[in-house]
């Protein structure tokens, strides 16, 4: 175990070993059962280990299920103190993990959160900023709103995370791009709508369009992990995918069915594509920042 985490550390520091195996766990969590969901996580981790995955990503609220409503406070976790996280942290000695959960931060504030675990530690927690509250969605009623989009170093390069609706705001992706992300990870619990097509819900296309645009114009790897299964008749659409920094879809999981997607990526492609398409070099965050301040200052109360 030690040897492997040591290897990861070296690999992160030099750049010679730039390939990594990413696994996406397109699962169907139980609604409101931490215990059953932890079992699903541990089984999937075993599977990913056998396949020598370096990074295993779970969908939004993978430890709890999505339609929690008043269960939010009942299934919330404090990662630093929680026995479930203790187990997951131990597992992350062997492979890095991304999980979705309800986080209690400060007393009585509950967030729809995602944690990146690696080398036995929590490297970063992202708290969902864009809480969909319209039509079939009611998140702002139950969750506190996250306030930031950070990038953070990982053994594979600089990463950024978003949760579901965050990813449909291109401003959020821009912040990760400006923050130097090389890989953007999106955890999702996106229900499908529209059944005019043969293979997938019409809304699956919306996520793929965003995946293509953001990966291509940010020249980053874009990894999107969606869940499947039904909750109160809502049908989560699956179709998890990986785009390379050239904006090409290189892997996609099944639509609507459970799946386990494993794909080897070469993080060095970020460097290679940026020689050809210098969007990152030519980015002008200072100008955008100042212009945005001027725009916002004109808003009426």
């Amino acid at each position: 175990m030690q040897e492997r985490s040591h290897y990861l550390k070296i690999r992160g520091n030099c750049g010679n070993f730039s390939t990594m195996k990413v696994a996406l766990a397109q699962i169907s969590p139980h609604l409101g059962s931490l215990k059953k969901n932890l079992d699903i996580h541990l089984q999937t981790i075993e599977k990913a280990k056998k396949k020598n995955a370096d990074l295993l990503i779970f969908p939004e609220l993978s430890l709890t299920g999505y339609t929690l409503m008043d269960m939010v406070s009942e299934v919330s976790l404090i990662p630093e103190k929680d026995p479930i996280f203790k187990k997951l942290k131990a597992e992350s000695q062997e492979l890095s993990l991304v999980v979705g959960f309800v986080e209690e931060m400060d007393k009585g504030l509950f967030y729809n959160s995602a944690a990146f675990l690696s080398g036995g530690k929590i490297l970063h927690v992202h708290r969902k900023v864009f809480l969909p509250t319209f039509g079939m969605f009611d998140e702002a009623r139950f969750y506190a709103q996250g306030k930031n989009f950070h990038t953070f170093p990982t053994p594979f390069g600089k990463a950024g995370m978003m949760i579901c609706r965050d990813f449909l705001s291109y401003g959020a992706s821009y912040l990760l791009f400006a923050g130097g992300a090389e890989i953007i990870i999106v955890l999702s619990a996106a229900p499908g709508r529209g059944t005019a097509q043969a293979e997938a819900y019409e809304t699956s296309q919306m996520w793929e369009i965003m995946g293509e645009a953001i990966s291509r114009f940010s020249t980053v790897f874009l990894v999107y992990c969606n869940r499947v299964g039904f909750e109160d008749g809502k049908h989560f659409a699956g179709g998890s995918f990986i785009f390379n920094p050239a904006g090409e879809m290189i892997a996609r999981a099944k639509y609507i069915d459970q799946d386990f997607l494993l794909y080897e990526i070469d993080m060095n492609e970020v460097r290679e594509i940026r020689k050809k398409w210098p969007y990152k070099r030519d980015d002008k965050p200072e100008i955008i920042l100042e212009a945005l301040k001027r725009t916002v200052s004109k808003y009426e109360d």
């Binding site: 005019a196 997938a200 069915d257």
Partner: peptide
Amino acid sequence: KINEPFVEKVLTAFIKEE
């Protein structure tokens, strides 16, 4: 317009899962 095979797949999956 619905895609009939897709709808069939969704509804049978729903019945099984529930």
